[in-house]
């Protein structure tokens, strides 16, 4: 099976309720977190299970392929 392409997650902070569910469901090692208690936003994820996007109660997590990342999202 081909390795999945790494992605970088993007969080729409306007809708984020800081619930931490994305971190709880994340299979990454310790430290894959942002300063706002969400999954990391500046680090490529190579597991690409998308559990964080699915668990989000308000669907505010999206992603881009790491190698196609554009700096278009205002933080």
């Amino acid at each position: 099976m081909a390795r999945k392409e790494p992605v970088v997650f993007f969080i729409g902070w306007n809708a984020c309720i800081n619930c931490g569910a994305c971190v709880a469901v994340c299979p990454q090692d310790a430290g894959f977190i942002s300063a706002f208690d969400t999954i990391a936003v500046n680090t490529p994820c190579d597991i690409v299970c998308m559990a964080c996007e699915k668990i989000c109660p308000v669907s505010t997590i999206t992603h881009q392929k790491a190698n196609e990342r554009h700096e278009t999202h205002a933080a």
Partner: peptide, 23 residues
Amino acid sequence: LQSQAGKWANLRTHIPLRNLASC
């Protein structure tokens, strides 16, 4: 729930999606 301490000790702390309710 977001425990990092367990991960530091390499404990199996991961919750699969089917066992975590999104509330």
